[in-house]
Amino acid sequence: MLFKVEMTVNIPHELPADVIDEVKAREKAYSQELQQQGKWRHLWRVAGSYSNVSIFDVEDNAELQELISNLPLFPYMEITAVVALCRHPSSIRDSDA
């Protein structure tokens, strides 16, 4: 199942820089692992903000919840939209399924 997820990160200013750097490094490693597995199919930065729009390809909403809640930055995230997607019949891309 494909899901569009919109996330905004709000890291508290009082967190020490070394803690922030460590959390961001773990976030990058985890997100890249999910991308390599094909579970996190697309990841776009929203220009001008610490936000992203992502497409996940997971078994169901329970798996999506597990993946998102395991993100190291999850405690600092606002998830503003989770939308189930399906292939459009006019799409010319076979990989849209």
Rank of each mutant, 00 (worst) to 15 (best):
residue 80 T to E: 10
residue 89 P to G: 11
residue 7 M to R: 02
residue 89 P to A: 06
residue 92 I to E: 12
residue 14 E to K: 06
residue 26 R to P: 00
residue 45 R to G: 02
residue 84 A to F: 00
residue 37 Q to P: 02
residue 25 A to Q: 13
residue 59 E to M: 10
residue 56 F to M: 04
residue 10 N to R: 14
residue 27 E to L: 02
residue 24 K to F: 04
residue 71 L to P: 02
residue 33 E to P: 01
residue 3 F to N: 00
residue 92 I to Q: 14
residue 12 P to A: 12
residue 96 D to S: 03
residue 87 R to M: 09
residue 56 F to Q: 09
residue 83 V to M: 13
residue 79 I to E: 12
residue 65 Q to G: 09
residue 35 Q to S: 13
residue 25 A to F: 05
residue 56 F to V: 05
residue 14 E to L: 10
residue 58 V to G: 00
residue 18 D to T: 14
residue 41 R to N: 05
residue 78 E to T: 12
residue 32 Q to H: 11
residue 79 I to P: 09
residue 57 D to L: 04
residue 59 E to N: 11
residue 62 A to M: 08
residue 56 F to I: 06
residue 32 Q to P: 01
residue 55 I to Y: 04
residue 93 R to A: 06
residue 47 A to V: 06
residue 21 D to Q: 11
residue 42 H to G: 05
residue 9 V to H: 09
residue 32 Q to S: 10
residue 90 S to I: 07
residue 75 P to A: 07
residue 73 L to A: 07
residue 96 D to T: 01
residue 2 L to K: 08
residue 43 L to N: 01
residue 87 R to V: 05
residue 26 R to M: 10
residue 76 Y to R: 03
residue 66 E to Q: 10
residue 37 Q to N: 07
residue 77 M to R: 09
residue 96 D to Q: 03
residue 82 V to H: 00
residue 82 V to Q: 02
residue 54 S to Q: 13
residue 30 Y to V: 01
residue 16 P to K: 14
residue 76 Y to C: 02
residue 21 D to N: 13
residue 51 S to F: 06
residue 92 I to F: 08
residue 24 K to H: 00
residue 4 K to P: 01
residue 27 E to N: 08
residue 49 S to T: 11
residue 37 Q to V: 02
residue 65 Q to C: 09
residue 17 A to F: 08
residue 12 P to L: 15
residue 43 L to G: 03
residue 35 Q to R: 12
residue 97 A to D: 11
residue 72 P to H: 05
residue 85 L to Y: 02
residue 78 E to A: 15
residue 53 V to M: 15
residue 8 T to Y: 08
residue 88 H to S: 12
residue 68 I to V: 14
residue 13 H to Q: 12
residue 52 N to Q: 09
residue 68 I to G: 01
residue 94 D to A: 09
residue 46 V to G: 05
residue 20 I to Q: 12
residue 47 A to P: 02
residue 10 N to Q: 13
residue 36 Q to C: 03
residue 31 S to Y: 03
residue 15 L to H: 05
residue 28 K to P: 00
residue 5 V to H: 01
residue 3 F to A: 00
residue 87 R to H: 13
residue 82 V to D: 00
residue 48 G to H: 09
residue 60 D to K: 10
residue 27 E to G: 04
residue 74 F to Y: 14
residue 81 A to L: 12
residue 3 F to E: 02
residue 61 N to G: 04
residue 85 L to E: 01
